[in-house]
Design a protein around this nucleic acid. Structure first.
Length: 490
RNA sequence: GGCCCCGUCGCCAAGUGGUAAGGCAGAGGUCUGCAACACCUUUAUCAGCAGUUCGAAUCUGCUCGGGGCCUCCA
């Protein structure tokens, strides 16, 4: 089944056919580096990390470009507040962004250009737009003339007359049409600036993405991504700029991810429900955050809440517990034993396990449906648990299937950036973190386990149960097994 | 005002014409000294109404409810 993607431009799912067979050029709008990234940035970047990974898994040679916008009004304002240069500020937050993305386990894009490294290309684009009559200079500023680009608003599907009628657009005196937007801004005192044919100035927002994408991916490329909120004006303006210069289609497929709400409310600074990635990672494992984000489809809104994150933690734990169990079994048994038939009773779970990759692909091929893909992986986990519950010593063909199922789960998990940790280590760390709230130490628990073991040996079950109940009150669950007693956090 | 999206089991969440994935929680069962874990079984006709169709959660219209964009924003 071919990959199908939802294209904002057409409003439909379309079969994905790259311009050059086997190769994909993909550009994702990164961040304006003036502050720490929040959970919304985390989602956008994780979503396109998965697009990147899945295309690579599908054997495409992907060139992934994600930029830093390091020249902008907000950067200048923030730098002035702090009494440092724009460059110092943006470098600080580029570093912070890189740390956050690394913590979230993102693959590094092929190119991570900075806007300020493309000033010459930006100026060249603006000059071409002026030469083609698509832009005009006005007192040191240069504006894009939207009236000269007939398909303006084709991405956001808006109506020029109605937008002009809206009271929220104030006509700028330097603009011919209030909808015209700045390509180049004349420098004000104290602002970072570069020499240009129109005097000292700096790029407007939008033009840097046109410059960087065409420099690194060409005039036309396959995928352009970003958050929904970028559709207008940012992406609309990128189309106007790039197509205004080249006269060719700018991007084949436009992909936009949905928002993150917090406790059912739009996340915003004024509501005070604004979470930075670093705040969140103090409370949640990065893989839990990633798992949470991927359990919803990328275009749906997603609600960030403690309850939802907690459920994701439990769900991810289920995977690691199954993998840890499987690791133990596989380590104990020799997988190259003779082939033997699989018990009839296990045909169904075996089938589910064997078909995991096929089902995973069909989910992902349907517009990167990670939620469904994870559903199929849960099915595989249940199959593994079922097999292990019924067969203490799997052998022959069954063992081969389990071994392959394990490898598939790890390999497909990697496409989603999941299950990359050693299961036993991950579970141990998770238990440690949970322990912090209980007031108990590992040694305390071990001592109580020994005490209870003695009580059970003496058939003093009342005392044994009392110990278990006391631990349970503190969130510690005891798990008895033939190999002894272990514990985990509730 | 314009444009767009959403409303699926107690909660989260897939499914966009062929008869409702998955997770959490719940109930019953197997296992257990009793539990826990795991496994098995079990729990929805898809906001409402009216249409189109052999057939709709999926298409159309209307109603109700929620949200987004139109200004910086992932």
């Amino acid at each position: 089944m071919p990959l199908r993607v939802y294209n904002t431009l057409s409003g439909k799912k379309e079969e994905f056919k790259p311009l050059v067979p086997g190769k994909v050029g993909m550009y994702v709008c990164g961040v304006t580096v003036y502050d720490y990234c929040h959970i919304g940035h985390a989602r956008a970047n994780i979503v396109f990390d998965i697009v990147y990974r899945y295309l690579q898994y599908s054997n495409y040679d992907v060139t992934y470009v994600r930029n830093y916008t390091d020249v902008d009004d907000k950067i200048i304002a923030r730098a002035n507040e702090r009494g440092i240069s724009s460059q110092e500020l943006s470098e600080e937050f580029i570093r912070a962004f890189d740390e956050d993305m690394a913590a979230l386990g993102l693959r590094t894009p092929t190119h991570e250009p900075k806007a300020t490294a493309y000033i010459a290309e930006i100026i060249a684009l603006v000059e071409q737009l002026i030469a083609k009559g698509m832009a005009y200079e006005s007192e040191g500023d240069v504006y894009y003339s939207v009236d000269n680009f007939p398909s303006y608003l084709k991405l956001s599907k808006r109506n020029m007359e109605e937008m002009l009628a809206g009271a929220r657009i104030s006509p700028g005196e330097l603009k011919r049409n209030p909808m015209d937007f700045a390509l180049w801004k004349a420098a004000k005192p104290g602002e970072p600036s570069w020499e240009s044919p129109w005097g000292a100035g700096r790029p407007g927002w939008h033009i840097e993405c046109s410059a960087m994408s065409s420099s690194l991916l060409g005039e036309t490329f396959d995928i352009h991504g970003g958050g929904r909120d970028l559709i207008f004006p940012h992406h609309e303006n990128e189309i106007a700029q790039s197509e205004g210069v080249s006269g060719k289609p700018f991007v084949k497929y436009w992909l936009h991810n949905g928002f993150v709400n917090v406790n059912q409310e739009k996340m915003s600074k004024s509501l005070g429900n604004f979470f930075t990635i670093r705040d969140i990672l103090k409370r949640y494992d990065p893989e839990v955050v990633r798992f949470f984000i991927l359990t919803a489809h990328y275009r749906s809104p997603i609600d960030f809440s403690d309850q939802n994150l907690e459920e994701s933690r439990i769900g991810l734990t289920r995977f690691y517990e199954a993998l840890a169990h499987l690791d133990k079994v596989l380590a104990r048994l020799d997988t190259v034993t003779e082939q033997g038939p699989v018990a009839e009773a296990l045909a169904e779970p075996v089938e589910r396990l064997v078909r995991l990759e096929e089902r995973f692909r069909s989910a992902m091929d349907d517009d990167f449906n990670t939620a469904q893909a994870i559903g199929h992986m849960f099915d595989a986990v249940r199959a593994i648990n079922r097999i292990l519950a019924e067969e203490n010593e799997p052998h022959g063909q069954l063992l081969t299937i389990l071994s392959k199922g394990h490898d598939d789960l790890i390999r497909l998990g990697e496409v989603l950036g999941l299950f990359g940790s050693d299961p036993a280590a991950w579970l141990a760390r998770s238990a440690q973190e949970g322990l912090a709230d209980s007031g108990l130490s590992e040694a305390d628990i071990e001592a109580l386990i020994v005490e209870r073991r003695e009580a059970r040996a003496n058939r003093d079950f009342a005392r044994a149960d009392r110990i278990r109940d006391e631990l349970a009150d503190k969130g510690v669950l005891l798990l008895d097994s033939p190999e002894g007693t272990t514990w985990k956090m509730k």
